[in-house]
Every structure is written in structure tokens, then in C-alpha cells.
Design a protein around this nucleic acid. Structure first.
Lengths: 202, 202
DNA sequence: ACTTGTTCAAAACGATCGTTCAAAATTAAA
DNA sequence: TTTAATTTTGAACGATCGTTTTGAACAAGT
């Protein structure tokens, strides 16, 4: 009776509630634009608990990206089949971009402003860039992918996968169209076709 | 006489110094991450002058983008030759991205967090998206460009041109390579080849 | 010389920032 | 039950935020 409400409140760990609120607010208002008070209000917990559980606002941000680090750490690709590896890379990245849109938005904000916190987040994005580079270089070596500059080629693919999902604020540009289906797998196949033609694979 | 010019020169000098400092700091630390005090220190002017000359921090941001609005307002493309129009679009955008990298970074940050200030900046980016859409649709209508979803196609090209310049913090990924030549025209041609193949134009 | 209007500098405003601390509440161990 | 350890709370800290106020400095018009 009385305990029912309390149990449900306790069911969700306090740390989880803080992480969820922080992920939402950092993505929507930026790291500097989000106050610890706002996070705690959103999470329904006391102000001091961010410092107590995470050691501060910075550390809270880093904690947000730990699962992402683990995800990218265990990725691997078969470089013997570069085209297939590239497809797999794009499918994986697009899927992850759809599932973790908020983290991607936070990461992009920090990247764009070369934030000093970025150093602590490097494990969250360096691996995927290095994987992509290895795939593209293997593809060129084997004559299956064609490009002139590896730097531009990597940026080209990254631009495509990062922009794989429609940016909400730009919907007005397409407001006359029927709403596009927001499906990760479908988006990935679109990107794959455009990118593979761009690198005119055989 | 002389004083008239001096006064006008000084006046514009102060406003210009503030704009320059704000452009640099907003790009490097974000809008919320940059204090008015920091801007004025960087510009070497007194604190109150931002509110005096621009009417506040928000208005200062909007003032930064006014030249960009004018630039995009007078763009036009010949839709009768869509491939050529697309090349022209990419060359123009890449060139502008190189010349105004800081503004682009600010805009991307604000876009990623769907900032409430974005409404006032819409003239700075809506026109280019609409131009691009018109070009791609004309190209498909005339059978010269091929894609399945106009939404994905627009995002695909935008991703390519926005990522046309190497992001500084990701240089370590390519640190073993000789530094890529930082030339807008050359980058544009790279992007054009990749994108046009992606849309396999004829 | 006196007023008028504009530009700039210094100080101060109230509000909010991230963090800390002592005490209360809760849980775990004995 | 008593004790010890952990978690949560509310208040408070000093620092910094964007903006406003006040008045000095200066040029132009009367």
C-alpha cells in the first residue's frame, strides 16, 4: 500500500535515474547549458547526489559514455571482404545512432567545440574512425573501393552515417512530404547504396 | 572631418572586435559555455559594451549570422542543368565552410541541441537545404540523378559537404599520413566525385 | 560657454552556478 | 537491539553568470 509507491521509486536505481536525466538534458541543452540542479529535478533526486555518486558533473558525463566505449571496443571486421565489412560498419553505426541518438548528439556537440572533456571521451569514437579507415584502405588495396584521398573518403562515409537520421529541426524542409519511416535498417540500406556507389565498388 | 572618420572607425572597431571574439569563443566553447566577460576580455573592451552595442548575449549571436543570411539569400541555381547546379552548390558550400568554419561550428552545435536560439538563425541554413532539395528533385525528374528517398539524399549530400573539412580533433586518426592540403577547391572536387558517383549521375 | 547625445568604464545588481558539509534517514552487520 | 556504514537531505559556500546603473569622457550643435 504505502510501500508500493516507495518500492517503485526505489526500483529504479538513483544512479540510473540521474544518468537518464543527464543524457536527455545534455543532448537537448548541451553540457554547459545544463545545470546539475536541472538534472536532479528531472531525475527527482536531491541536488547533492550527483557529486556523491559520480564525483561531479564532468564525471557524470564520462559515466554516460562507458557503455558506448564497451560497445565500440568489441567491434571487429573481416578486412578480407572490405565491401561486406563496410556494409557491416554502416549497418552497425546507423543502428547504434538510432538507438543512442542522445549520446551521439552529445558527442557531436563536444566534437564541434573541441571541448576539453573530449579527451576523456576518445574511446567512444576513435575506434570507429580507425575501423572505418582500415576497411577503406583494405578495399582500395584490393581494388574493390575507389577514392583519391583516404582522409576525404573517411569523412565522406562518416558524414553519411552521422546524417543517416533526419535532424528534427529540419523537418520543415520536408513538411510537404509524408513522414519518412524512422527505421534504422531501412536508413542503413539507403546509406549503403549511396556510399557504395560513391566509392563505386565492384 | 578627421574626427568623424575616427569616431566611426572606432565605433565599428569595437563592435567588430566583439564580433570577432564572440565568433571565436562561441565556436570553441559553445554559446552557453562562453561568458560575456570572456568575450569582452578577448576583445579588450569593457563588460557592458555587449549589452550596449548589441542588446544582450542572444542578440550578439544573431548579429554574428547576419552576413551569412545575406550570403545564402542571394544564391540561385539553374535547375535545367541539375548536375551542374549540384556541382555549383557543393563548390559554394564547401568554400563557404572553409571561409566561415567558426560560424558553421556554432550552427552545428545549435542544431545538434535544437537550441531555442535556432529559430532566429533559420535564415542561415533553411535556404541552402531548400536549394539542395530543389536541385536533387530536378535531377531525378530529368533522369540525371538517382536516389530512392529525397530525405536521405538531401541528408547524404549535406553530410558530405559539412564533413568536407577535416575535424581538427580527429587528426590523430591520420597522424601517420602527410598532412592533407587544406584547400577548399580541392576538397570540393573530392566531394563532387564521391557524391555524384553516389547519385550515379550520367 | 552650455547643452545634447553618444560611447565607454567601473561598480553593483540579483540570480544561478557546481560543490561541500553536517545532520538526518536508511540499511547492514553484530 | 545496538552499532556501524551507507545513502539522502537541506542549507550554505564562494564563484561566476548576464544585465543594469551611474557617471566620466568626448564631440557636435546652439
Amino acid at each position: 500500500m504505502v510501500n508500493e509507491e516507495q518500492q517503485q521509486a526505489q526500483e529504479k536505481d538513483v544512479k540510473e535515474k540521474i544518468l537518464g536525466a543527464a543524457r536527455k538534458l545534455f543532448a537537448g541543452k548541451g553540457f554547459e547549458g545544463t545545470s546539475v540542479r536541472h538534472i536532479c529535478d528531472e531525475a527527482g533526486v536531491a541536488l547533492a547526489l550527483v557529486s556523491y555518486h559520480f564525483g561531479g558533473k564532468d564525471k557524470l558525463l564520462y559515466a554516460l559514455f562507458e557503455p558506448l566505449n564497451e560497445h565500440f571496443a568489441k567491434l571487429s571486421f573481416h578486412l578480407e571482404e572490405p565491401v561486406e565489412a563496410l556494409k557491416q560498419f554502416i549497418r552497425g553505426f546507423v543502428a547504434y545512432r538510432y538507438e543512442n541518438e542522445e549520446l551521439i548528439h552529445i558527442l557531436q556537440q563536444e566534437m564541434m567545440m573541441q571541448s576539453p572533456r573530449l579527451r576523456m571521451l576518445s574511446n567512444a569514437y576513435y575506434p570507429s574512425w580507425e575501423h572505418l579507415r582500415a576497411i577503406l584502405e583494405a578495399g582500395k588495396r584490393q581494388g574493390e573501393l575507389h577514392y583519391e584521398s583516404i582522409v576525404h573518403a573517411v569523412h565522406f562515409v562518416m558524414g553519411a552515417v552521422i546524417f543517416s537520421r533526419q535532424i528534427p529541426f529540419l523537418e520543415p524542409v520536408f513538411s510537404d512530404l509524408p513522414p519518412v519511416e524512422d527505421d534504422a535498417a531501412q536508413a542503413a540500406e539507403h546509406i549503403i547504396r549511396l556510399v557504395l556507389h560513391g566509392l563505386h565498388s565492384r
